[in-house]
Design a protein around this nucleic acid. Structure first.
Length: 879
RNA sequence: AGGUGGUUAGCUCAGUGGUUUAGAGCAUUUGUUUUACAAACAAAAGGUCACUAGUUCAAAUCUAGUACCACCUACCA
């Protein structure tokens, strides 16, 4: 690897070096995992992004967290297998292609299926490449040899195998049911892909007369265009208003067809007129009522919609027109006929397709279903074995979902996807792996003796999620061969990282499938991230396109900068993404770059014994502080508190290392301290590496690698320090810095910056020496010397100050008091009030009786100190 | 309608039953071009911690209720 260092560079040139560094990692096969029984395996699965477009902030957050786990486990000596992949995303991709073709002015009807499929294939190849490059460019340390695509041969085979098994067990079946119909994509979609939005709608009240027009009944509906599909009128069993009408028949306006009045408890008396029309082919509830009364009343099922959302030929002169246009014109007609009563605005939900954002229609249709309830029985057992982060947040939700779960509609009327392996001959069907086997089966099963007969494969493809729910097993080829070495070694996944929005789509289904198929959990842990949202609180997603291109962000902020930016928010909850986050990330990387520049520049002065003592203290402090923080860091990561862990490192590096440590040793560097500094710096790079892999690798190569054959940082050991640290040293150092800050704050710095003395009591000398480093005070403040005195100093010449428990004096002439008097007055008032409160507390008998002793003592101390402080302030006020 | 989470500085968010004035980043204001870093450093200003009640010697923190916001689930002719 050729990495060069130019001292003139103002920042880390990520555009140039990130690629070189990743190539090098790849060349040395650091991320490729082979079975090694002496090493524990860690299996991580990258949730496959859809090939519909490039990656966005949500993905990057997700994958960064996964990559942190991967890199850290690798550095801890585990055999990490981080499996990347992409999803064919059947419906999403197909819609995307259709849109693109439409924009080009190409009509889909005029393209043959073959050609269409070729276009999609080309697209999928292109975007597979793009996505992989993007994953590499953000630093994902994946095992590329194990890369999968959900339309690969092997995966396809697995999907088919699973389908056949479930079909044979009677879990997959074909039936006429009400499904969600997307009129744009012309396919069914699953319940999870439907988004309900509450919107204002008109509720129409319409009169239906009896034959002789003597009586009428008023139904209420939001969809008057469906009257062509009416088969009955329904009221609640207990609704007394309609008692008179029992057993009567009514006539549908416009089409003049007779329909009966029926009863059902599902009808809500209070809503609308309490009387509804039944159109069983286009409403789930109506369908249920229809089924119950079908035989008794001889009801018919009438489908009135074409696949594109226009009315079909059963709708008289309205046929061929869009359902919403018909709604308007039919109301006009009803008004003319005198059947229209009134309309009312109500708030009601419209069902939208998540994929195409069009209003979906409920429609009766012959589809394939999966009896998920049948295989979900033992799920509690498996869910209890899996740990979810954040803990317990989703438990209730999960069980509720399982309770209400309906059969899963798995067939889609699309081209792009796994074709359902069912074959037809006349009205007979078989399920088989391929055409040849299917033909043989027909011959056997149905005793067909003809040599030449044509069979047809089912046109529909499977829902995308049908191929996703088997992933944990299928990526290790565990479906085709459930006793292979890889599968036995790597299964199950250690931790799954994913957005909380696909809990039902994917996460739960994987648990259900693995539990059913091999009686095992698919993963040990699940880490849910929040969802990235834009300023308007919309999900950042491919379909909305509300995000900037990744390459733009990478060019501007670098991969490490992006990673830092996204780690700067608490990712357990949804968050609003703002590009300023990336700026913060970039700035941090810049800081790191400059620290390297500084270390490269250091020149050692030969004779420097002046500040040996100071150096010793600094080293002692930082050494202990590092151990303390690294210990804490490891605890955070073990608890999967990623956000906290990074915040810790961020502050450790920027504040403690750069602002304090490096500033303190400046101009005072000898061989020993340089050696120590490089050691600390290496430790910092190591703990930073999982978070920001590129820049740390670069610096490590520049600063520490002497031979080509030396290891890169990515395979070094992650520091876990078992040494104990000394708390009192850390505290003493902190105390001292606070003391110095206080000295600066009381504002007695002379303009000529002449040094002056600080006076302390003899009796407090020990306390001072125990808790404060004098040497640091000399270094960082204008104090010339700390002098020890026996008696109180003359008020006229000296001013008395207090910091925590420390009392000290300063000569008045050393103070330039430019605090204005008003401010001091406000302070005095504040402390007087504060003092009053404490005195009151200390007079409270209950407090003295019940509060712990140390708290009481603390209050007493406070009282003392505030009194003194007030004294000082008042003195200052006079000044 | 039910569930979950939230309400803390102008913005985005940390935070803990008692530590003299509740923290960070960004934004704002002021100062500093001093040899690692102006994408920096130093500092200032900015908060009745949503509201009400309760528990407690002590509540921003625990409990309950209210209001508002977000998400999820269900109903809707």
């Amino acid at each position: 690897m050729r990495l060069k260092y130019y001292k003139k560079n103002k920042n880390y040139n990520f555009n140039k070096y990130d690629k070189i560094i990743y190539k090098n990692w790849n060349l040395k096969k650091y991320f490729f995992s082979k079975i090694n029984k002496n090493k524990k395996s860690i299996n991580l699965l990258l949730p496959p992004p859809n090939i519909t477009g490039d990656l966005h902030i949500g993905h990057i957050l997700n994958f960064t967290i996964l990559d942190i786990f991967a890199r850290r486990y690798r550095m801890l000596g585990y055999n990490v297998c981080f499996i990347p992949g992409t999803d064919h995303a059947s419906i999403a991709t197909e819609i995307k292609i259709i849109k693109i073709l439409k924009n080009k002015g190409i009509k889909i009807n005029k393209i043959s299926k073959n050609k269409f499929n070729k276009i999609i294939l080309k697209w999928s190849k292109k975007y597979n490449k793009i996505i992989i490059n993007q994953l590499k460019s953000i630093g994902c340390s994946c095992d590329w040899k194990k890369k999968y695509f959900t339309m690969d041969k092997n995966h396809y085979k697995s999907v088919i195998k699973v389908f056949i098994k479930l079909y044979k067990e009677g879990i997959i079946y074909k039936d006429n049911k009400i499904v969600n119909w997307d009129i744009y994509a012309k396919t069914t979609i699953s319940e999870e892909e439907v988004i309900y939005k509450n919107e204002k709608k008109d509720l129409y009240y319409i009169k239906y007369y009896t034959k002789n027009k003597k009586n009428n009944i008023v139904i209420s509906t939001t969809r008057p265009e469906t009257i062509f599909g009416d088969t009955a009128i329904c009221v609640n069993n207990r609704d007394k208003r309609y008692k008179l009408f029992r057993n009567k028949k009514f006539i549908i306006p416009i089409i003049n067809r007779k329909i009966p009045l029926i009863k059902n408890t599902l009808v809500n008396k209070k809503f609308g007129s309490g009387c509804i029309k039944i159109t069983p082919a286009h409403s789930e509830k109506d369908y249920i009522i229809f089924k119950k009364n079908k035989e008794k009343y001889n009801l018919k099922l009438i489908n009135i919609l074409n696949d594109d959302g226009t009315l079909n030929n059963k709708c008289m002169n309205f046929s061929g027109k869009d359902r919403f246009l018909v709604r308007k014109s039919i109301i006009k007609t009803l008004k003319k006929l005198g059947n229209f009563v009134k309309k009312k605005k109500i708030l009601s939900k419209n069902a939208y397709s998540e994929r195409t954002n069009t209003i979906i229609e409920k429609k009766i249709s012959l589809q394939w279903f999966l009896k998920i309830k049948k295989i979900v029985k033992n799920i509690k057992k498996y869910i209890n074995k899996i740990i979810f982060y954040p803990k317990n947040k989703y438990n209730n939700l999960i069980y509720k979902w399982i309770k209400n779960i309906k059969d899963w509609n798995i067939s889609r009327q699309l081209n792009w996807g796994h074709k359902i392996p069912v074959y037809y001959y006349k009205n007979k069907e078989v399920v088989a792996n391929n055409y040849k086997i299917a033909k043989k089966l027909f011959k056997k099963k149905y005793n067909i003796k003809k040599k030449d007969f044509k069979i047809k494969q089912e046109n529909n493809v499977l829902d995308t999620w049908f191929s996703s729910w088997i992933l944990p097993i299928s990526v290790l080829n565990g479906i085709n061969n459930n006793n292979n070495k890889n599968f036995n070694y790597y299964y199950p996944i250690k931790i799954l990282v994913t957005g909380n929005d696909i809990l039902f789509f994917w996460v739960l289904r994987m648990i259900i499938f693995s539990g059913y198929y091999i009686n095992k959990i698919p993963f040990k842990k699940v880490y849910f991230t929040g969802i990235a949202r834009d300023i308007n609180n919309n999900k950042i997603s491919k379909s909305l396109g509300n995000y900037k291109n990744l390459y733009y962000l990478l060019k501007k902020y670098g991969a490490d900068g992006l990673r830092v930016g996204l780690l700067s928010i608490n990712n357990e909850y949804d968050f609003i993404y703002n590009e300023k986050l990336c700026e913060k990330g970039r700035n941090f990387i810049n800081k790191i770059w400059n620290s390297l520049k500084y270390l490269k520049k250091i020149k050692i002065k030969k004779k420097n014994n002046k500040n040996k003592k100071l150096n010793k203290i600094i080293i002692k402090w930082f050494n202990n502080y590092l151990i303390y923080k690294i210990n804490k860091l490891n605890i955070y990561i073990k608890e999967y508190k990623i956000y906290k862990s990074f915040l810790l490192i961020y502050n450790l590096f920027k504040e403690k290392f750069c602002s304090i440590y490096l500033e303190l040793i400046k101009n005072n560097i000898n061989k020993i301290i340089l050696k120590k500094t490089l050691k600390y710096y290496k430790l910092l790079l190591l703990i930073l590496h999982p978070y920001i892999p590129f820049v740390t690798e670069y610096i490590y190569n520049i600063l520490y690698k002497k031979n080509k054959n030396n290891k890169d940082i990515t395979v070094l050991k992650f520091p876990i320090i078992k040494k104990k640290y000394k708390k009192n040293i850390i505290k003493k150092f902190k105390n001292t810095l606070e003391f110095i800050k206080y000295l600066k704050k009381i504002n007695f710095i002379k303009k000529n910056k002449k040094r002056f003395n600080l006076y302390i009591y003899k009796k407090e000398e020990l306390l001072y020496k125990k808790k404060i480093y004098f040497i640091l005070i000399y270094k960082l403040s204008l104090i010339k010397k700390i002098k020890i005195i026996n008696k109180k100093k003359n008020k006229k010449k000296y001013l008395f100050y207090i910091f925590k428990n420390f009392n000290f004096f300063i000569k008045k002439k050393n103070i330039i008091n430019n605090l204005n008097k008003k401010k001091i007055y406000i302070k005095i008032k504040f402390y007087e009030n504060y003092l009053y409160k404490i005195i009151k507390k200390l007079k409270n008998k209950k407090f003295l009786l019940l509060a712990p002793k140390n708290i009481i003592n603390l209050e007493k101390k406070k009282k003392k100190n505030i009194k003194k402080l007030l004294f000082t302030l008042k003195n200052n006020y006079k000044l």
